[in-house]
Every structure is written in C-alpha cells, then in structure tokens.
Design a protein around this nucleic acid. Structure first.
Lengths: 210, 210
DNA sequence: CATTATAGAGAACAATTGTTCTCAGTTCAA
DNA sequence: TTGAACTGAGAACAATTGTTCTCTATAATG
C-alpha cells in the first residue's frame, strides 16, 4: 500500500481509527493487542511507537495515548468527474483534515443548520450545516447571514442605488422570495465560508426527484 | 447556575471540557484532581461519578473514562431560516467536530473532489468534496461512486427491467447526461454519505447568476 | 553459506490506575 | 440540640498500565 513503510502500519492505524470513531478513546496497550490481534503487549508497544513517529499518536500527560496531528487525515481520491467520466485513476493518496480545511478561525466560526430552500441555486439545501464566520461587514455578492428586523436569514448581499438589500437564490420560486429590504438597518452577522452535509440514509431522500 | 444540582458539577465539567479540547483525552483521576484542585482522589472519583450519572462521561473498556453522549452537547445556533426569516435566537457557539459528525468508518472513507455539474439537482456542485464510504454494493436510489468502463463517476444508481444503470441529476441539461448503461459490468466503488464545500473567496464565484 | 533486519512472543517491574473504606468538618432543617 | 446530608481528605488494595529486556522464527541480503 505505502511502499516506503516496511511494517504496514496503516492496517493497524485503520483499525484504530475505526475504534476511535466508535469509542472516542485510544485504548491501552492491552486492549490494542486484542484489537490488532497481537499476542505480545511488547510488540503492540512497538507498533504504537511507530505510529507515534509518524505523528498519528501522541503521548499525553500520564503517558497515555491520544490522537496525534495526523490521526484525522483523510485520503483524497482523484477527481470524480461528475460530468463526463474521466481517465482511469492512479490512486495517489492525498491527505486532508476536514476540520482544518473548513475552519480557519475557530473562535469566530459558527455553524448553522439551514432551513428552507431559498438558496438552492447555490447548492445550499435544507438540512445542510453552513459555516459562518462572524463579521459585521460584507461586500455585495457575498452570501451572508444577516439579521433583518431581529431575525436571521441566509441570503446574498446585493446593492443598488437605493442601498443594500438581500436576495434569495431560487429561480423556480423567485416569486416566493422577493428581495428583502430592511425597514431601517441591515445588520450583518457573518458571512458564509462553506458548508457540510450528511446525506440521509438509504435511497429515501436520495430517490427520484421527478 | 443549575438550580437542581446540589454539587455544582458544571464548574468541574467546564474545566474538563476545556482540557479535552486542548488535549483530546480525558485524564485519569489523579490528573483530574490536579485540574480540579481537589486534594483527595476519592473525592475526584465522586465528582466523576456524578458526571457519569448526568451522561457527560462514560466508562470505556478497561474502566477508563471517555466523553459521554452529553459531553459535546451542541447548542447550535438556532436554525437559519433560508426561507422566511425566523425568530431571533440566543446564539451560543458550538464545538462540533465536523470530522466526527461526518465520518463513521474512517478507514473505509475517502474524499473525492467533484468535477462537472451532472448532480446539481442534489446540491452537489463542481468543487465540492464528496465523502465516499467504500463498498462493493449499493441499493438503487443511492448516490454512488461507480467505475464504469474503468472510469470514476458519481451518479444515482437506478434499476429497471434491463438491470442497473446510472442516472445524472441535472434537469436543465438532462440531454447532456443520458443514463449510463455499462457495456458489461457496473462496478460500485462506494456510496455517497455526505459532502463539504469551501466557498471560493469574496463575491467572485458567489456573484449574480443571471 | 552467514548475516542482518523484521515480526513476534514471554516474562518481569515499578508506577499508576480506579475504587472502596473510614473519618472529619460544615450546613441546614427538624 | 440532634442528626442527616454534603463536601472533602487520607489510606489502602488489587488490577492494569507503559515499558524494557531477552528470546525466537522468518525473510531478505550479501
């Protein structure tokens, strides 16, 4: 799998990552031995050492183990061509930490669940979690979370000769979402920097839409 | 703070949550004693017991502690109503690990960047990162990453009397994306379990779309 | 062939672990 | 005043911990 590595650490790592996703804890050497099907705790310890060198594990206070910086890395496959299919794949793994990738300023970042379909043309669906970075200002064209007349709305900030206003992005139901012009003040809560979505299970919600 | 609780568990919990955010591990009773400024480990144990009853901690295999279901209790900002604006909300920041939320089987999960617009009706846009869980099978109606004639494609798995085939989800350009019927075999690489998206900076790509 | 890593096992050890038991102040209602 | 509850401390214990040391197979390399 990974040519440079003499001991195939990654099969051990995989099991551990799955375990951690389930149990939310890095187990002791004894339990790791069971998990990895290794008879000798000393050998388990050796493998752990290897994982530490690679940055997948760390020793916390009290010499217990905790996830290291690389523990949450995910492999990125190469180019899904959702248009016309693409040339076959040499699967050259690239790694990405989702949290780090999405959030740059954790202290100023807030998540909001989306309700309604006023932004579907931008691929923002009901149930999605949008990632908002707090800010009092934004430029027109940006997607913003605004507080209009004391209520939250996710809309596109626009501007004309009469001043700033908010636009929806739903062509099909544009008559349902007319531009919003605040009565007096338009308060920006933050701007949209991304989103994530967990698909509902099975082909239920994923079914035909016609 | 919490009227019902005789012992103010929440000041202890707060310190522990902060610690966990930094160290990604629940420490031992000894270290908890230091963290909480408690002289006797027995008393620390008592407090832990209380936290377990409330569901903030759990005993994992080997009687170590791990975060319980309420440990990450999310006070998500209340519902962005992308439709009609909603009642204002006290916005409390949430500490949700996006990674944990999205991925259940790390070792079998792979990310793929989306190219093309064949799935826009499901809110899957070019540039999005889709999260794929490896699997050789899927049921019709599911969004799958398939290998058709040695090429990757993200499509909806469908079935009729002639067998399985792949459908796009782009009503506007449906003529550009006819159903794909594999020449001989249709190999499923995995199925779609979610996605995340980082909006391109500034009002560039976010601009008007008419 | 001999040699040298690699992969694995078994035993042993001091330190730390979670837990329990006993005892001592403090608060507060009966 | 009496007596529970709380809140807290100290000691003690068996079990488990991380770690180290020694000892085999197996595989590759010269």
């Amino acid at each position: 799998m990974h040519p440079m590595q003499p001991l195939d650490i990654f099969s051990y790592l995989g099991k551990l990552q799955d375990y951690y996703a389930r149990e939310r804890i890095i187990p002791s050497t004894t339990q790791l031995s069971v998990l990895w099907n290794v008879k000798a705790r000393s050998w388990t310890h050796q493998i752990v050492q290897r994982l530490k060198e690679e940055g997948f594990l760390e020793t916390a206070a009290g010499s217990r183990l905790r996830p290291g910086p690389r523990f949450f890395e995910r492999t990125v496959g190469h180019a899904v061509r959702a248009g016309l299919p693409q040339q076959a794949a040499d699967v050259q793994p690239e790694l990405l930490r989702i949290d780090d990738y999405l959030i740059e300023k954790p202290s100023q970042t807030i998540l909001f669940p989306v309700k309604g379909d006023s932004m579907v043309d931008l691929g923002i669906l009901e149930g999605d979690m949008v990632i908002i970075e707090r800010s009092n200002s934004a430029s027109s064209g940006q997607v913003v979370l605004a507080i209009v007349d004391n209520e939250f709305t996710l809309k596109v900030l626009a501007r004309d000769k009469e001043g700033y206003y908010l636009e929806a992005r739903n062509e099909k139901r544009s008559q349902d979402y007319p531009p919003i012009r605040p009565e007096q003040e338009l308060e920006i809560y933050g701007f949209y920097i991304g989103l994530f979505r967990k698909a509902s299970v099975s082909g239920h919600r994923l079914g035909l839409n016609r």
